Amino acid sequence: MTSVTTLRGILIALATPFSQDGAVDEARLRSHVSDLVDAGVHGIIPCGSTGEFINLTKDERKLVTEIVIDEVAGRIPVVPHTGALHAAEVIELSQHAKDKGAAAIMVIPPYFEPNTWAEVLAHFQRISDSVDLPIMYYHIPETTGLDLTIDQFRELAAIPNVTYMKESSGNLSFLVELLEDPEIDIKVFNGWDEVTLATYAIGAVGSVWGAANYFPALAVALYETAVVKNDIAAAREIWSTIWKLEQPVLSGGYVQNVKAALAAAGKPVGDPRPPALPATPGTVETLTAALAAAGLKG
Rank of each mutant, 00 (worst) to 15 (best):
S128Y: 07
L245A: 13
L14M: 13
L7H: 11
A211V: 14
I45W: 05
A235C: 05
I186L: 11
K166W: 00
V72I: 10
I232E: 10
Y111T: 02
D35N: 13
P275F: 15
P110Q: 09
C47S: 10
P141L: 00
N55H: 15
S49K: 00
E246W: 04
P109S: 10
S3T: 14
Q247D: 14
F174S: 06
L93Y: 04
G253S: 11
A118G: 08
G145A: 04
N257M: 14
L197Y: 01
N230S: 15
D25L: 03
I105Q: 06
D25T: 07
T144H: 00
G203R: 03
E285K: 13
A157Y: 04
L175R: 01
K259P: 01
P114S: 08
G206Y: 08
S168V: 00
D35P: 02
L29W: 03
A260H: 14
Q20C: 12
T82C: 14
A276E: 12
A265N: 10
T199W: 00
T2Q: 14
P110L: 10
K244M: 13
I184T: 02
G206H: 04
L14F: 12
L291A: 14
T16C: 08
Q152G: 03
A204E: 00
T149Q: 04
V37W: 09
G270Y: 13
R154A: 07
I135H: 03
K267P: 00
I135L: 03
G170R: 08
I186Y: 01
G270E: 04
R61Y: 09
I12G: 06
D59E: 15
Q247G: 03
A260K: 14
D35H: 12
A279L: 12
P248A: 15
E180A: 10
G48V: 04
I202E: 01
A103Y: 05
V72W: 07
M165Q: 01
K267G: 04
Y254C: 00
A233N: 12
K187T: 05
K100P: 02
N115I: 06
A226C: 08
G101R: 05
A84W: 00
I202F: 02
D35K: 11
W117T: 06
G9F: 11
L218C: 01
D147W: 03
P268M: 14
K244H: 14
G51D: 06
E89F: 01
A201K: 11
M165T: 01
M136P: 09
G43Q: 03
V72A: 06
I44P: 11
P182L: 07
G83N: 00
I105N: 09
A97W: 05
E224N: 11
N213R: 04
L291I: 15
D38S: 13
L172I: 13
E142R: 06
A87D: 12
F189R: 01
V68I: 09
T225A: 02
A261W: 05
G252T: 06
P110G: 10
D129Y: 05
I242L: 10
E52Q: 10
K98D: 12
A263V: 11
S34E: 14
A260D: 15
K98Y: 11
L179E: 01
A211S: 15
L218F: 05
T65G: 12
N115A: 10
